[in-house]
Design a protein around this nucleic acid. Structure first.
Length: 274
DNA sequence: AACCAGGGAAGAT
DNA sequence: ATCTTCCATGGT
């Protein structure tokens, strides 16, 4: 990786594929424009362009996006450790350019409450309306609203932006955060403790908690079990419907690299649907 | 334990 | 073309 002016240049394309990174289920605020991707996080944005020999990330906040794209972590090491574990060979061959983004914990909490029992295009649309209504105008896009900006929203507001029956979850959770529920103590917890702790928020069950922990706190000892992971598990492991057992067995299998394994498996299964 | 609560995509008929 | 299912969580 090198940095020139307002551009990060990445030459190791083996562990950086922007399509894979954006489409493995961890982020909702991005779109493709011709040969480049526009990506948004809080009030920041960047443009990612892939060339034959390099990727360029253009932004006025270079430091933010070095961390955001997790560029100081060695994914070769992670893949080498995982490749010998069950079903990782095909998944890593297919999606070896995946990285786990370092996203903002508050943005992840709100976004993944919206994600529950929902599909990606609709999740993206709800979040866009949320930003447009309450977020700072940053010129050609809107920032993700701050907690303070969200404090004016009532349940009807969340219904208006199309959140459906999640409206009351969002309202309740914002209220709890405004009242001082601490989302930073999670950093000091194990995945297991943090999963329980986040379930104190309305609309956050075990799966949503794991997504928040993996994408908002980079906790890799969790395993979000969604419908695609259930398919993987039933096909390759045991034909069971017990989600808790699946999660425990998968974490038992992939240990402290569970979060990475989940992303490789999710992307592999969701893209191939086989 | 079994059901329902937006809404829209995907699957089934 | 139209009907049914699916999706995570919380509440009944």
């Amino acid at each position: 990786m090198e940095i020139k002016n307002n551009t990060i240049i990445i030459k190791n394309l083996e562990s950086f594929n922007i399509k894979q990174i954006l489409e493995c289920g961890q982020i909702f605020r991005f779109y493709q424009q011709g040969d480049k991707y526009c990506v948004f996080s809080l009030d920041k944005t960047c443009e990612v362009t892939t060339f034959a020999d390099r990727v360029e990330i253009y932004s006025s906040d270079i430091d933010y996006f070095v961390n955001f794209f997790d560029l100081t972590r060695n994914y070769e090491t992670i893949k080498k450790e995982l490749i010998n574990l069950p079903y990782m060979q095909d998944a890593i061959n297919f999606g070896g350019g995946i990285r786990i983004l370092n996203q903002n914990n508050f943005e992840m909490i709100i976004s993944f409450i919206i994600s529950s029992n929902n599909r990606i295009p609709r999740i993206k649309a709800i979040i866009e309306r949320l930003c447009a209504k309450l977020g700072k105008n940053c010129g050609n896009y809107y920032a993700f609203p701050t907690l303070k900006q969200l404090s004016v929203a009532d349940e009807a507001f969340f219904t208006e932006i199309g959140a459906g029956y999640r409206a009351k979850y969002l309202y309740q959770t914002c209220k709890k955060l405004i009242e001082g529920f601490d989302i930073n103590v999670v950093n000091e917890m194990t995945g297991e403790q943090a999963n329980k702790y986040l379930q104190n928020l309305c609309g956050v069950g075990s799966k949503v908690a794991d997504c928040i922990l993996l994408f908002g706190y980079h906790k890799a000892d969790v395993f979000p079990v969604d419908t695609w992971i259930k398919k993987v598990y039933q096909q390759y492991f045991i034909n069971s419907t017990d989600t808790k057992q699946m999660r425990a067995n998968l974490i038992g299998t992939y240990k402290n690299l569970s979060g990475y394994a989940q992303q490789y498996l999710f992307y592999f299964k969701r893209e191939l649907k086989e």
